[in-house]
Design a protein around this nucleic acid. Structure first.
Lengths: 170, 170
DNA sequence: TGGCAATGTCAACAAGGCTGACATAAAACT
DNA sequence: AGTTTTATGTCAGCCTTGTTGACATTGCCA
């Protein structure tokens, strides 16, 4: 497994995929693809006066209904002051609801309101549409490879979070 | 080809890779992987008082020696004011050299100085190391899929730029 | 009761986007 | 030759989103 799937017929032949040239292509592909990845939601957000940070908060609140602020902080990897600024406007605008925890009353559990869910839907529809087109064009095997490489590219801590998030809903 | 490689045994079976759940995983993988992708260079840049914008400029100047400002603007997709702020500090610090064009004297051609090349090397070593580890773990087939999906995810204009950049140096 | 945890908030700062306006030099066009 | 367009640079100001540091409140827990 350390030499990757495909097994025997490599060593020196297929190792060409690790040349600096190939790596640079990968790097530039990430750069350009990430631009495309965020382009559609960004256009929608702009019309509402929100930014990418709002999108991320909305995404992960939708993703994990009732998550706590601390948990969201860990997922997003920003400071509480930064998150709070975003969260405050979302709550003020009635897109997110913050409920005091029942077990631990210090915690705030975050939920999307109906309005929030509508925006979330709109944003993720746009983003999924692009992802779907890319997946369809590329085909299932390419998609599997795509996910494998991305997963390997994450920082250890982030990979654990990603896997924890992901493993639940198959 | 419109249904992706793999040909016949799909339609309704392997189409499972286009479910909303799978698409969401792809979206989150992009988010977490991009964090990892930028983490190592960011750490280096921080010690020099530079940011990600400087890295991008340095990368593409290295990439296309003698590129013009306009060309760089198109690749990076930012305004000239934004790029100029970055470029000015890089020139002032002696990492980038700006030479008046010979054919067209309005143009400025950009080059990395020796100092600039040293930093470029350091940054790309770090980024390539992570990419290389990810590629090695994932294997050549996964890497091919990775690039296929990313390419399909780009905006049309950006994809053209990426391919134009990429096609030259195999 | 004292200490730690979860959250919120204020203030200040920095990076890096953006727009708009204006200046200069050189090329290109008429 | 004169006008317009292009390439570049620059000033000023604004926004989002990240940061640090300090401080307050509330509630859990030993």
């Amino acid at each position: 497994m350390a030499d990757g799937p495909g097994g025997g017929a490599q060593r020196g032949e297929t190792l060409l995929f690790l040349t600096d040239e190939q790596l640079r292509k990968g790097i530039e592909a990430m750069f350009f693809a990430y631009k495309g990845f965020t382009a559609d939601p960004d256009r929608i957000l702009e019309t509402r006066g929100y930014g990418r940070a709002h999108h991320r908060a909305i995404h992960f609140i939708h993703r994990s209904h009732g998550t706590t602020v601390n948990n969201l902080l860990a997922i997003l990897g920003v400071t509480k002051q930064s998150l709070n600024r975003v969260l405050r406007t979302l709550i003020k605008d009635g897109l997110v609801e913050s409920r005091v925890g029942t077990r631990d009353k210090r915690e705030r559990h975050l939920y999307l309101t109906e309005t929030g869910q509508i925006l979330e839907q709109e944003l993720s529809d746009a983003q999924r549409a692009r992802m779907r087109d890319a997946f369809r064009v590329a085909g299932p095997e390419a998609v599997a490879g795509f996910r494998t490489v991305l997963e390997a590219m994450m920082d250890g801590e982030m990979r654990r979070r990603y896997l924890r998030l992901t493993e639940g809903g198959q």
